[in-house]
Simulated assay, not measured.
Amino acid sequence: MIGTVSKTKDLAATEQFLKDIDEKRIKREYFTYLVIDNSTNEFIAFFYLKNADWSIPEIEIGCYTDENFAGKGVTTKAMNLFVDYCFETFDFKKIRLRMHHSNTAAQIVAERCGFELEGTIRMDYMTTAGEIVDLTYYGRLK
């Protein structure tokens, strides 16, 4: 989420960020979804699809949940619905999740949603601070 925040510091930057996202959507490279409480219109979570390999086809899901909804099972329920949507709508054969090994909340959601631990890739991601970190991978087949 730090990368998103850094790209939306002011209105002009936010407009450009949204334009870039829309261009990526048209190219089928990046898709964004919001989870909103229907009764209050309150933001709950942000899901996105990226790093598609349409030849398999497989994709990676990313998710951020508002801290007011964390730990209440909302993310798990939304993730299960979203994964089903992705399999049905895009006909993916595999969906990936990857996370820092210290993100135990994400690991719990992954396991509760039927994802299986596939392993850790060393030095797999550079953070916005420039640190290269290992990531833990989970996968779920259709």
Rank of each mutant, 00 (worst) to 15 (best):
Y30Q: 07
I21S: 11
G3W: 03
T40H: 06
C86P: 00
G119P: 10
H101M: 15
N38I: 14
V83G: 02
M123Q: 15
E29R: 06
L81V: 08
T65H: 04
N51Q: 13
Y64F: 13
F69P: 02
I132G: 09
G73P: 06
F82D: 01
D66E: 10
L97A: 00
V35M: 07
K7D: 06
T127L: 09
V133W: 04
K7C: 05
S55I: 15
F17M: 04
E116Q: 14
E23L: 14
M99P: 00
T76Y: 03
E111C: 06
A52S: 15
N41R: 10
I59N: 07
D37W: 03
V74I: 09
S39F: 13
V35E: 07
R112A: 07
C63P: 05
L117H: 14
K94A: 09
L18I: 08
A13F: 11
R122D: 10
E15S: 13
E111I: 09
R25N: 11
A106R: 00
G114P: 03
T76M: 03
G114D: 06
E42F: 11
T75Y: 01
R140W: 07
H100E: 14
E60G: 04
I2W: 00
G71L: 04
N68K: 12
F87V: 03
V5R: 07
D37E: 07
F82W: 03
G130M: 06
C63S: 07
S6N: 14
Y137T: 11
F87W: 02
D10F: 03
K24M: 12
D22T: 12
E29N: 06
V109H: 00
T75P: 02
I59K: 05
R140S: 07
T104D: 10
V109I: 03
G71I: 03
Y30V: 05
G119N: 11
S39W: 13
T14W: 05
I56T: 15
C113F: 02
D66Y: 03
A105W: 00
D10P: 04
E131D: 15
T4Y: 08
M126F: 14
D10W: 01
E111K: 09
E23N: 15
I95G: 01
A106Q: 01
C63Q: 05
D22A: 05
L18F: 08
R96Q: 15
